[in-house]
Amino acid sequence: MRYHPALMDELNLLLHFNLDTTQQGIKVHHDASPGLIEAAARLHEKGLITQPDGGYLTELGRETAEHAQIMLGLLKESTPA
């Protein structure tokens, strides 16, 4: 399985969550890109966020967002300057 644009939208949306607190969520507004709106809905269907337009991370969503942020950090570290 490869990363495709829809999956990349989901990963990018997960990167917007602040993992330093559970008291801060996000809101995907109706004028956001269609890919971002659809990504939020899919993440909600998968049980990763509490609302179809954002909200808060669920326990599984937090774990997934942590992994996404770690992966991004590792890939950025290995990117040549």
Results as ranks from 00 to 15, higher is better:
22 T>F: 04
73 G>C: 08
20 D>N: 13
18 N>G: 02
76 K>E: 14
67 H>N: 04
38 E>D: 15
79 T>W: 11
57 L>C: 07
12 N>M: 13
5 P>E: 08
14 L>F: 01
40 A>H: 03
17 F>N: 14
23 Q>D: 12
70 I>Y: 06
21 T>Q: 09
18 N>F: 01
55 G>C: 04
26 I>W: 02
20 D>L: 06
66 E>F: 04
77 E>G: 00
24 Q>I: 13
46 K>V: 00
42 R>Y: 00
79 T>F: 14
37 I>T: 08
78 S>R: 10
48 L>E: 01
80 P>S: 13
77 E>R: 13
50 T>V: 07
12 N>H: 11
9 D>P: 00
70 I>R: 15
12 N>I: 02
22 T>S: 12
81 A>I: 04
55 G>A: 07
76 K>H: 13
44 H>Y: 09
5 P>F: 08
59 E>Y: 05
61 G>N: 09
78 S>T: 04
44 H>V: 02
30 H>W: 14
28 V>S: 14
77 E>P: 00
46 K>E: 13
71 M>Y: 10
73 G>L: 04
14 L>N: 06
36 L>C: 09
49 I>A: 09
8 M>G: 01
36 L>G: 00
11 L>R: 14
1 M>C: 08
34 P>E: 14
13 L>H: 07
6 A>M: 04
52 P>W: 02
7 L>N: 07
78 S>V: 07
68 A>P: 05
50 T>H: 09
8 M>R: 15
46 K>D: 06
74 L>E: 12
59 E>D: 13
2 R>P: 14
41 A>R: 12
16 H>G: 03
38 E>W: 01
72 L>E: 11
81 A>H: 06
65 A>F: 02
33 S>Y: 08
27 K>S: 10
81 A>G: 04
68 A>I: 03
45 E>R: 15
25 G>K: 04
54 G>W: 01
30 H>V: 10
12 N>V: 02
11 L>E: 15
